[in-house]
Design a protein around this nucleic acid. Sequence first.
RNA 1: GCGGCUAUAGUUUAAUGGUAGAACAGCGGGUUGUGGUCCCGCUAGCGAGAGUUCGAUUCUCUCUAGUCGCCCCA
Length: 476
Amino acid sequence: MPRTKKASKPSSSSKVAKKKTKKKKITRRKVIPRLPKKKKIDDSWADKNRYSPQLLRGMKDILPAEQPARDYLLKKLIDLANAYGFEKIITPVLEESKLFKKSTGLDTDVVEKQMYQFTDLGGKKIVLRPEFTPSVVRAYIEHGMFNLPQPLKFFYWGPAFRYERPQSGRYRQFYQFGLEVLGSNQPLIDAEIILFSQTFFNDLNLPINIQINSLGCAHCRSNYREELLNYLQSHKKSLCPDCQKRLEKNPLRILDCKNLLCQEIVSRAPQLINFLCKDCEKHFTKVLECLDEANVVYQLNPYLVRGLDYYTRTVFEIWPVIDEKEKKEKTNLSALGGGGRYDTLIESLGGRETPAAGLSYGLERILQEMEVKNVRIYQSRGPQVFFAQIGESAARHALRIFNELQSQGIKVAESFGKTSLKAQMKVADDMGVKLTLILGHQEVKDKTIIIRNMKTGNQEHVDVNKLAKEIKKRLK
RNA sequence: GCGGCUAUAGUUUAAUGGUAGAACAGCGGGUUGUGGUCCCGCUAGCGAGAGUUCGAUUCUCUCUAGUCGCCCCA
């Protein structure tokens, strides 16, 4: 196809003049050779049922650009979990509604108004799991795992779903990583999973703050609840409207209300720790001793209450540490993760009396925090060799050579979608490869291929049959 | 579930009651066989719907989505 030379543009022309000539050119070109533009097609079809796909609210596509950080994070989590002796468990995304109603708790927000619930074609009430622990416990009971040597240590990761108003660090489909230890009441276990958190976040270079509290067992809690109610009732009028509601529904929640006046009242309220029974107190003390011994830095927070019903004794949360700059931009922060002991859950779901503890992290929240703190991600190196082909005869041989190199263990990048050498070289350059292989018709004829060193620009023809060897020599 | 703010090419953005201009990215060309820079060209946009208007991307409403806060949580 002959290409007409472009007319050299008048050097003195004003912007306006340029624009005019430009526009004329465009319209001429467009009208004559092209198919009608999108808009015209739409008009002619008059398609009112046209569908514009859009993400569902609170959902997120995880695009290639985000994968390296994600992979890095997950790999670190999985490696550490394995090192700590946790084994992977995968449970289905779908569960029966009842599972969460009986475990997470009917009165919790998660179950009350945040579950994705539906009835399946068989008439069964189904939910998209809002969290993992009940599922893991279900599997434990269902497969009779109490017959295995205890305790069992599981880790998991995957999507969970909650129908909430989306916000920064809050999606309706979000990914959790978590640990569960089933079958031990030892304080050492509580300490172990808290230590896991410190080790992990230290290793990731994310400063965190670990907050710990003990909720005691059902006995301590009901005693305390009574005391607390007595105290709060006397201050009822000063509490914020939300807390007045909570007074009846879930008075423990008032402890972590952010309202200043409520906090003031709470600060003089009786503390849960003082109501722990002997066993619970002993347990908590031992947990703290283990943590001290392991050099875990934590903060006791007597007002820490978790939102799920099944927690007993030790509870903890992992919070990001913020600096002054961030404080100005954001007032609301989200916990990166949390967990605790749930000694009665397994029994309440029909299993034997089995003590257990666990934790879970929000992957998106950690990733967000990694970005804020500029955490460095170490990626495995990409290909060091790029394969470029020019012309039809080269294209015909391209896949064979490409495949041969791959099978010899040489990672090769390509851009088969491009034909011009220039464009392919640019891709190679962008990738930062060490060597580029160039195959054109001359090389095909001679049964050679060019190896170009991208740094020095040196090029050598080598025998195609010795290509892998030659590349390996040069990559050393 | 409640309240505030926002919505213009892939991204960041400009202007405007008379349908939009740029930068970066992308694609192509400047040697139809060689990367960077530079130069040139091209592609691509007013979130959806309704109303007011001769005319709406601009004004109003609804929806959708995002964002921030409350609630709650990871």
